[in-house]
Design a binder for these strands. Sequence first.
DNA 1: TTGTAAGCGTTATCAG
DNA 2: CTGATAACGCTTACAA
Lengths: 343, 343
Amino acid sequence: MSILDVSGGRVKVTTTIRQVAAAAGVSLATASRALSGSPAVVESTRKRVQQAADDLDYNPSRLGRSLVTGSTGNIGLIFPDISNPFYTQFLAELESVVAARDIGILIGDAHEDSHREASLLRQMVTQVDSLVLVSSRMTDAQITAAAVRLPVVLANRRLAPGSIVPELLSQIVIDVEPGFSAAVDHLYALGHRRLTYLDGPARSWSAREKRASLTRACARLGVDLSIVPVEKPDFESGRQVARHLDPNTTVVVAFNDQVALGVLSTCRDRGIVVPVNMSVVGCDDSLPIGLAWPALTTIDSSSRSLGALAAQAVLNPAVHRTGSVPTRLVVRESTGPARPSMV
Amino acid sequence: MSILDVSGGRVKVTTTIRQVAAAAGVSLATASRALSGSPAVVESTRKRVQQAADDLDYNPSRLGRSLVTGSTGNIGLIFPDISNPFYTQFLAELESVVAARDIGILIGDAHEDSHREASLLRQMVTQVDSLVLVSSRMTDAQITAAAVRLPVVLANRRLAPGSIVPELLSQIVIDVEPGFSAAVDHLYALGHRRLTYLDGPARSWSAREKRASLTRACARLGVDLSIVPVEKPDFESGRQVARHLDPNTTVVVAFNDQVALGVLSTCRDRGIVVPVNMSVVGCDDSLPIGLAWPALTTIDSSSRSLGALAAQAVLNPAVHRTGSVPTRLVVRESTGPARPSMV
DNA sequence: TTGTAAGCGTTATCAG
DNA sequence: CTGATAACGCTTACAA
């Protein structure tokens, strides 16, 4: 009694619970109960139904189930750029914990565009149980509106304090303050009195946070800070921007490790020796050890940890309303003392 | 007349097409037609319905729609390891083309495990229109079974020629032959007569392909080939394995660029100068230029191109039954002449 | 312990 | 052109 439906040269055989019930000689309801392990079904019939299901290679339709139960077993994940390892690692970590719970993951790449992000959100909202927005570029209002409809975990972004319903969503952030503060201390101790910051995306919350922390730390110690925008926070842009730096630059702090790597690459090309003639500090510690050469001094702000926290928030929205990943400075070989003439 | 459903402190407001219809004073059916742009509805009512939908912020449920139409608007994507840039880039490319068609993407990381892969497949099969299996570790039989149920695009893998229903699925592969052949020619011309290959995952089809191509090319020229297994095709494993190479090794060809980078890193640590004392060849060309130092001679086999082809196969399953991405050797600075004593 | 029937949100088939 | 009504596959009261 299988439904045969020829489409595109393919014979579509989908076993429904109806067929299982028929094969086992029970009603629809009993089949459903038996398969979902309800206690209100005697072992003998339960076996029989299971047998029929196995024989027919029955696979319950998530669609049908979702429609009636109101929960889909999927979560949605939206980030600004899947090519960026920061997000890939976040994703990898999140995946490994939610997949263990048999939860499906719908992903969307907003390409740094808030319109695209909103459109992805619309697409997902009817087929996921909750939504993880990573480094969202949408407005507070848009995010809040989404959070009214379904549980939202906001990662690497925090709503303005005045927001109306902060209780509705979880906010997981990286606390960049200690790391950036320590970085400036470190550079100051090495004798540096001025530094150049290669800034992140204009619309990014975390970019603003990093800039603010750095600005505070520099002000505190009287270090001269110049901020240079970078088109895209990736290796190539870092490489480009490094070519046009003020020739007197001796210290570069980068928005992330990718950009820092780009700077290292340009330095190598130009015979500028790191850390003798130039000190470089990255951020994220997203790179395997040994990839950067010389080894990169960086502000550890693991996106994996962020992913792990976000995963907890997804699984237990009631508890993990807020969380933050601490940062710390990891000193390696890309920072060195200021040359006497520069002090 | 909105359905209010308090759950977890959240007021769940979902507008259904029923409410839109009521608000516009038309029947369910008319509302559906109006919103889906059916010609069989007069402009005046059509406007009215649209207005009501906008007012109520109506967002059609993909679940309900899918159930009745039989198509979900989603595709599923399963690969062995999301941390691997090869797959990330594949994903990025695929995403950018299918997302433009407003198609959702469900991803699954099989963690190199065929059981996990099969389980992901079961989860997805009822909620996607077609499936992309990248570097699948499942058996031909399992893959074929899946292809009977729904359109499958097999990427970076090819079924054994004897397979019963090869017409049922699309197969997109990388043709490694020309690239590896050229690499051996190149090394031979530089005077090398022996080389070491750092092999990929045992269960991987593409790893077997690469090994076979290399073996053929070496046999053709009478080059001595020794094959060394690598635990995982990543930077760290490459770094490890390079530490335990035969000290006489002068040429290393790696399964992918990540492993090759690891080798470069170890060489740097040990003062082995590339390409003077050691020649290194990667595969994939997945790295931004400048990341590797010295610049890596590699076999270009772009995973982005693979993703683009897979995307076409997904969108047009009838036409793109098969496709292959050509490879070629890109000579940079990590390969050099054999030292006279070695010839 | 099992069966009947309602309904999740939508589209599609019929009549009108 | 529009409106009832029947699906789609499933779970879950409510009855038996």
